[in-house]
Amino acid sequence: MIVAAVLFAYAVLLGTLAPRLLGRARWTERAPRLGIVAWQALGVSALASAVMAGLALTVPTVRVSADLAQLLQACVMALTAQYASPGGAAAGAAGAVLALAVLGRAAWCAGAAVLRIRRERQEHREVLDMVGRADPVRGVVVLDHDEPAAYCLPGRHRRTVITTGALRTLDDDRLDAVLAHERAHQAERHDAVLAWAQTLARAFPRVPLFRTAETEIARLVEMRADDVAAARSGRLTTAAALLVVAGGRAPAAAMAAGGSTAARRVHRLIEPHQPLGRVRIAAGSLAAAVVLALPLLVVGGPAAVATQLNYCPDGTPAAQVTTMR
């Protein structure tokens, strides 16, 4: 019961408080890859804690002993004891519902998203292969269109698409930056990262963590790809390429208040580059690992401690105790 309460409280804390803290942090823009990992760790950890809280209510914790028969007997006794009382049975049922609902909803939404994305990509690719011109030298598909634009169709049959308008306005260096950016998306499977973030946000739309994580991850994968392109083509060249492609299009009617992500990305490339230091990257990675491991420790901790207890009757020779473990 205590384990379940702790896990549930942890999940709620991650779901509500964590997005406010990490969302305000400025270091994520200086280390976008670590930022992505941090948001992912928070999401997975919140999901896992909620599921395990449900399981902890359903299955009473039993002290682990080395003797299998004893363990099974203890299990059966604990289970019958819990489900004999109406309160215990109700808690068990509620826990099972919680765990199954959270897990089922996440799995269902993930499956639906995978199918939808695959279908949309295939439809898009069929039209693209018909109307686009393959440019084997640059490894891109060219579309006859006046507005400068570039995008990629990820997946197994991936395509990098660029319009004639973009080819006309970008010089070779800038075009190189655009292509490096798209290749970074594909090499680091940013489409899968985004799909998972979107799935969580849609499966549990009321959880602030998943909402914030989706928008933050979408922003950070772009900055990460910008960094890869900048390492190859230079930061100012990449900024110029962004400006050419973004500035040549009419802005969408509905756009979020405040500056656009595109403008922030260009700003970031123009400003002096200050990547996060190694020590801080290591500390951040460690923190992400702890966030991930915490729910497992809460469940596994008492069990691990229990294995160290001596269940043997008094008077058993010490040597025998060690072998029994």
Partner: peptide, 8 residues
């Protein structure tokens, strides 16, 4: 998630 645009 279906397509990744270079910049909006």
């Amino acid at each position: 998630a279906t397509l990744a645009r270079f910049v909006e």
